[in-house]
Design a protein around this nucleic acid. Structure first.
Lengths: 234, 234
DNA sequence: GGGTAAAGTCTACACCGTAGACAGGCGGTG
DNA sequence: CACCGCCTGTCTACGGTGTAGACTTTACCC
């Protein structure tokens, strides 16, 4: 147990590495939020000069990309699963729990790709896409159709995650209080429905809600698939 | 044409107002991106000292909220439409075009609510929610069910918008070039599907894709509705 | 041991959000 | 008219940010 801790001046010996840097960056984001991830702050956590970080990431944006990648790498996809619907369901739930475990990273997941053309993104963030395409093609979709299915699926999934995180507050008791407090602030005349939904808003089963949506979506997509197979056969 | 333009020192006379400030802020974001919206930059655009902005927004975050609200206020919902599915479809397409018109604002739309409890958000951003709830209740959903439907719908919608914006590049010619360039960069062994999809990726009809997804989702939701009505009747 | 490339540090710059004290002009009231 | 008070806008200043560029130190190979 002599490893270099955050601020102990005793042992600044271990050589840094990209993985060490990104790991600490993720810890920092998880515990204090995205804004806390500054070069100076991170350098301090690592017991190093802030400028040393630039050996492992070109700039702060690249660091953020690295953190996204680190999280997304934890998502395991099994492209050879014969039951593609079950597999998609499983992936969805995995990504959801991943998002709940790293809520502060979600804005990155959702925002960074908007400013990076597909081909230039970190490979780790593209891997799930590739693997899901494989899964769908193995299930009988034409590649182009697989892309459409992927888009519908991933769109829905990210949408759900954003939705759920919007309503998520750490302490459920404070949640209720805050919620009522907030709702009470709304003009009664203009927001009757919302105000009335206070109780319904506060007990939210994200996993169930995700699963219902998936059922609707996947059965719809399956219908589409069988239609296409039929047409191809004719 | 003697109105005060951006940098003319001639006529710094017009009194500022929250609307004027937010409008210029939106212009700045649209033309130069979110990062360009700094207090100093915006002050300069308005020919005023940066500090004057604090009379119209508590801080930069509040300014960002104001910009979100300004955009979302352009979304018109008709809660009394008897055809709820058609109305939801229309809203979806409206929001999509709004997003394409202000792509730089989308990260705000998607990100700001994550750090603001529902009750404390700008009223303008809550109005669509309230109105869609009305629409659904009028269509026969129980309030609590209306909330579920809303979540599935809005989740899907935001997901689609994020998806589409990720693949959107301004100049379609450069798009193709960039895309191929980017794809070429991917290791062939690990990303065969993705590399093969180059052409399919570059012609993307967002509106059609959105519409297909909506068809699937809405028919699924409708089935749910009739099931519930039946059960209630029994 | 000597040389070399990498890892880490230092200094400096331009820019950021914003607290707090202040100035100017406008309105309403006498 | 003079006066007062409030609202708008300005000024100065502080502590924080990302990062360029030159430097020093370290680790390793021959």
């Amino acid at each position: 147990m002599t490893s270099a801790k955050s601020s102990g001046p005793g042992a600044p010996k271990v050589r840094l590495s990209r993985d060490i840097v990104l790991e600490k960056a993720l810890q920092l984001v998880d515990s204090e939020g995205l804004d806390a991830l500054t070069m100076r702050r991170l350098g301090q956590q690592l017991g190093r000069d802030p400028m040393s970080l630039y050996r492992y990431a070109e700039n702060r944006a690249a660091l953020l990309d690295g953190v996204s990648e680190l999280v997304l790498n934890q998502l395991k996809v099994h492209p050879e699963d014969p039951d593609w619907k079950a597999q998609l369901r499983e992936i969805a739930h995995d990504l959801r729990t991943l998002a709940l475990r790293h809520p502060n990273v979600v804005p990155l997941l959702v925002t960074r790709p908007l400013s990076t053309p597909l081909g230039l993104r970190p490979l780790g963030t593209l891997r799930p896409l590739e693997q899901i395409l494989s899964l769908l093609v193995a299930a009988g979709f034409e590649p182009a159709d697989a892309l459409h299915v992927y888009r519908a699926y991933y769109g829905f999934l990210y949408g759900h995650i954003l939705n759920e995180l919007q309503e998520y507050v750490v302490d459920p008791e404070e949640n209720e209080a805050l919620l009522r407090l907030g709702l009470h602030r709304l003009p009664a005349r203009e927001f009757p429905r919302l105000r009335a939904l206070g109780p319904a808003l506060s007990d939210y089963d994200g996993a169930a809600e995700l699963d219902q949506g998936l059922t609707i979506l996947l059965s719809g997509l399956e219908a589409q698939l069988s239609r296409q197979v039929a047409r191809r056969g004719a």
